[in-house]
């Protein structure tokens, strides 16, 4: 019994018939071709598949596509705007917050949730905010610096805007 869903992904409305057992991450990768969202552990431990659903970080391997019907989804592909990197993407590049890059999309999306709640997090708060995301390369230090870079950049941008 296929179910029709309508999901807004990175600002674009999509409507598809899906098998109810389709995981949201499969829908994003296999139906929409948005392969920036990675499947790591497939058991909701590693956080590589983290995306934003209605502004909140979720693990898309542990959510059905039908549960996202009517929701606003944001993936790593939706972070850069008008050809310029999001401050988080820029931060990960400037501060060497990645090596192999597998965990990076999930790290960035989880960091986006963190910064939306807490624009100026302490190091401890960043580490706690990313406790659901595993990185097996960096030892996390540069990831923390990347998020700090982004927090600073965003607050500077907001000051300029005011």
């Amino acid at each position: 019994m296929a179910t029709t869903i309508q999901v807004t992904v990175n600002g674009k409305v999509h409507s598809h018939e899906v098998d109810p057992r389709t995981l949201l991450v499969q829908y994003l990768r296999d139906v929409l071709g948005l392969t920036g969202t990675h499947i790591g552990c497939d058991t909701s431990n590693c956080g590589a598949c983290t995306i934003l659903v209605d502004g909140k970080a979720v693990k898309s391997c542990t959510m059905l596509a039908v549960q996202a019907d009517g929701c606003e989804v944001k993936t790593i592909e939706g972070m850069a705007e008008d050809g310029s990197l999001h401050p988080l993407q820029e931060g990960f590049r400037e501060k060497h917050g990645l090596q192999c890059g597998f965990c990076t999309p999930g790290m960035i999306m989880a960091s986006a949730d963190l910064l939306s709640r807490n624009p100026n997090p302490s190091e401890q708060e960043i580490r706690e905010g990313l406790e659901g995301n595993f990185c097996r390369c960096t030892g996390y230090h540069n990831i923390v610096k990347s998020v700090q870079y982004a927090a600073k950049k965003i607050s500077e941008q907001e000051k300029v805007a005011q």
Binding site: T50, A57, T62, M63, A110, D113, G129, G132, N133
Partner: peptide, 9 residues
């Protein structure tokens, strides 16, 4: 409980 992503759902 779990982590932020788990707590959100």
């Amino acid at each position: 409980i779990g982590d932020v992503q788990v707590r959100n759902k």
